[in-house]
């Protein structure tokens, strides 16, 4: 049990604050869930009817039956998992290099990558669209995944993390005759599991909820991701006449992310409980 995990009890005031905060977080979510089980016609009159019966599964049925939702779900999974895997690999490699290797222009290149944090999506999205059109990448998985792989934050984050690992580990391993890649793969990478989990969740989330790039890159319905597909399934005045359906969509789209979070959460907790070498 690592001592970095606080052992002492929380003061009462903090506990109260925590409970209040949790209530503020949860209330809207519960409310979303309730709305998703209400008929659209009833909600058009008054959204407060969400707190009383009758409830219905109709909205979920509308999502599951008939539309291409399973296809969109698959697309989203492929794109989000592909992006996450790619980001973790690329950023770990680059982060290791920037943190622990010496090569010409290392600092310059690192700052150069940091500049990427400041690039607003709107500044690159249209030129990138033209560029991808030239390469024939639209309406394809690579076209959807590639932009997500450029994650300056991931490099920055992993670099910071690799820097914090004590250097004597490298020396010990190098003395043992390990190659640089073995050192990276066998010794250092396992130490970064908490960081990988954090970055992984963050990347998956961003990719799953991304809207603008898939909207203009995937324009045929068999290549839609879930966000774009669900948006296309809405009627024009969905907020008014399809509120329950909209909320059911929200719940439906969030489930895979919650599952991913739960998986990673275990990782984080295990890392906290002392699996990581200190």
């Amino acid at each position: 049990m690592s001592a970095a995990v606080s052992r002492n009890r929380l003061p009462i005031a903090a506990t109260a604050g925590l409970l209040l905060g949790a209530a503020i977080m949860v209330t809207p979510l519960v409310w979303t869930l309730l709305l998703s089980f209400k008929s659209n016609a009833e909600l058009m009159r008054d959204s407060a009817t969400a707190f009383s019966a009758p409830y219905t599964l109709e909205n979920y049925r509308s999502i599951l039956v008939g539309s291409s939702v399973s296809r969109w779900l698959l697309n989203s999974l492929i794109v989000s998992l592909g992006t996450t895997a790619g980001v973790l690999i690329l950023c770990s490699l680059a982060g290791y290099a920037f943190a622990r290797l010496d090569f010409p222009f290392r600092r310059t290149l690192f700052v150069f990558v940091l500049l990427g944090l400041a690039v607003p999506e709107q500044a690159v999205i249209l030129p990138r669209h033209q560029f991808f059109a030239l390469l024939g990448l639209h309406n394809s998985y690579p076209g959807l995944i590639l932009p997500g792989l450029v994650a300056p934050f991931g490099v920055f984050f992993m670099t910071q993390y690799f820097r914090a690992i004590p250097r004597d580990l490298d020396e010990a391993a190098m003395l043992d005759g390990a190659s640089r890649f073995t050192l990276f793969w066998k010794v250092l990478l396992p130490l970064t599991i908490p960081a990988q989990a954090t970055l992984g969740v963050f990347t998956f989330l961003g990719s799953w909820n991304d809207y603008w790039w898939p909207l203009i890159s995937a324009t045929t319905s068999d290549r839609f991701t879930l966000t774009v597909g669900l948006a296309s399934a809405q009627m024009n005045y969905a907020q008014t006449s399809g509120l329950g359906f909209l909320m059911a969509q929200a719940v439906f789209a969030s489930i895979p992310i919650l599952i991913v979070y739960i998986i990673f959460q275990k990782q984080i907790v295990r890392a906290m409980a002392g699996t990581a070498v200190r």
Binding site: S62, V65, G66, S67, S232, A233, N236
Partner: peptide, 8 residues
Amino acid sequence: FFGECGAV
């Protein structure tokens, strides 16, 4: 546009 209603 006009949404998707394959369910029905």
